[in-house]
């Protein structure tokens, strides 16, 4: 069973989560449901600082033993930080997808885009249908 989806953040249809801060930056990761689907994560390809992304653009790549999965940016922005701990311990995403397993930090170009994202309740509804 996946862990409950925290209500302090936004969700995308591609199984990312996003926490928005008042300074205009956001932390992004994948949901616990997503890490369960991917299973044993063995490699994370992180972007360079300064990379510009738009919604649905690949911002990172997560690999399990068998699969290669793109992680899409839910919003428009610029990468300001990456979770370097994932270089040596990619399994942090499996262990704590909503916390220590965060992937990138972005500076948002347009916080209005957040309105397009899902709430925790919406997201739960969506994965129920997927199952």
């Amino acid at each position: 069973m996946s862990k409950p989806n925290p209500t302090d953040r936004y969700y995308s249809r591609d199984h990312e989560w996003l926490i928005y801060y008042s300074d205009g930056t956001a932390l992004i990761g994948i949901t616990d449901y997503a890490q369960e689907m991917l299973t044993d994560i063995v490699f994370v390809d992180l972007p360079e600082i300064g990379r510009k992304v738009v919604p649905h653009a690949t911002v990172a790549v997560v690999e399990s033993v068998k699969s290669v999965s793109d992680i899409f940016s839910p919003v428009t922005g610029e990468v300001i930080e990456v979770n370097q701990a994932l270089e040596d311990t990619p399994e942090l995403i499996n262990q704590d997808a909503f916390g220590e397993g965060w992937i990138v930090s972005l500076r948002l170009s347009d916080p209005e885009e957040l309105k397009m994202l899902l709430t925790a309740a919406d997201y739960e509804e969506m994965i129920k249908e997927e199952k």
């Binding site: 299973t39 044993d40 063995v42 399990s64 033993v65 068998k66």
Partner: peptide, 10 residues
């Protein structure tokens, strides 16, 4: 393809 996860089964 897997029951739990590939690494554990391996």
């Amino acid at each position: 393809v897997q029951y739990t996860n590939v690494i554990d089964e391996h």
